[in-house]
Every structure is written in C-alpha cells, then in structure tokens.
C-alpha cells in the first residue's frame, strides 16, 4: 500500500517535471523568438505635428489630468510677428496682452518685445494644457512654428496612449526613444 502510493507520487512528480520543463522550454522559445524582433531601445509615443489637425482632444483625452501633450515653440521657424496668429484672436482689436485678445485659454504664452517690429513668444509649460488653439492659429496665419508635442518628461508612456486611440488623424505612433521628438523645422544648435 505504502509503496503503491509512493509509486503514484513518483509518477506524478515525473509527469509534473515533464510539464514544467516543456513549459520552461516554451517560455524560453517564446523569449528567443521575441528577442529577434525586439528593440533594445525604449519605445515611446511620438506626435507627428505634420499630421496633427489640432482637434483639441489632446487636452481632454490624456490619462493625466493636465495633458502631457503641450505646445512647443520651434523658434527657428518663428517669424517673431507682432500680429501673431498663435497668440492673438483672429479679430483682435489691439495687439497686446489683454485677455480679450489672447487665443490661449490659460495664458500660457508669454509675449516679449525684442525690437521693432519683433516679438518673442514663449510657452509656459506648467500652464499649457495642450488644447492646440495657438497651434491652429499659427499654422493658419503664420509659419507653423508652434507645434504640439508629447512632453516626455511628463508623459507616463502608457502602453496604449489614450490620445492615440482617439486621434482622428493618426498622428501618434510608437517609436524608438531616439525618434520620440519630431519637430518640423527644428535646427539643433551646435
């Protein structure tokens, strides 16, 4: 009786061992197969400004309550216009910083006088909510130097970006880390 039970136990352990080893082999095989098509680099989400249509969903759809998508100013492209389509409402009466003239709903763009007739525009990131209103204005009337970008220092890099899911122009894609920032017209200073 004893030996019978022990035999049974031995057999079961043998069976378990077999299954365990085949499972381990399966996992290893899966791992090797996947490594062949893996990236050693981290994958990040990228927003392609040339595809963006500024629908405004970046401001509302991000899992963070203040979106990780923010406006970025590509100074190299900026015309430093006094009449800035990204800063001022299209029918603004005065070219000044008054609330009634500003496009930005959160006062996140700072306008600074440089010299006649040029003004510098600077995005205050803590205030920017990524609604893209200025981007739309700049693209329509100006050079398109204001562009929406994912700020990777804020972005939590969700496995499936919630904005990407609802982006109507498929401007979001998952890319290796080195390609994560895509700005049009950006010139890296030496």
């Amino acid at each position: 009786m004893e030996t019978n039970e022990e035999n049974k136990k031995g057999r079961r352990e043998f069976l378990n061992q077999g299954i365990r080893l085949s499972m381990a082999a399966g996992l290893a095989g899966l791992g090797f197969y996947l490594v062949r098509k893996s990236h050693s680099e981290k994958m990040l989400w990228q927003l392609d400004p040339s595809k963006c249509v500024q629908c405004g969903r970046c401001a509302t759809e991000c899992v963070l309550s203040q979106s990780a998508v923010k406006c970025v100013h590509v100074y190299d492209m900026c015309g430093y216009c006094d009449l800035c389509g990204g800063y001022l409402r299209p029918d603004a009466k005065d070219l000044n910083t008054a609330a009634e003239n500003q496009v930005c709903p959160t006062n996140a763009i700072a306008r600074k006088y440089i010299e006649e007739p040029y003004f510098e525009y600077h995005i205050i990131e803590e205030l920017c909510i990524g609604c893209g209103k200025c981007v739309k204005g700049c693209g329509a009337f100006g050079n398109g130097s204001l562009q929406l970008q994912i700020r990777h220092d804020v972005c939590v890099n969700c496995n499936q970006c919630a904005i990407a899911n609802v982006c109507p122009s498929e401007a979001f894609s998952l890319v290796p880390e080195s390609k994560a920032n895509k700005l049009v017209g950006y010139e890296k200073k030496k």
Partner: peptide, 8 residues
C-alpha cells in the same frame, strides 16, 4: 504644409 510665410 509648414510654409514659412514670414522670414526669420
């Protein structure tokens, strides 16, 4: 479509 309407 990013046209530099205004020069640098």
């Amino acid at each position: 479509g990013f046209t530099q309407r205004f020069p640098k």
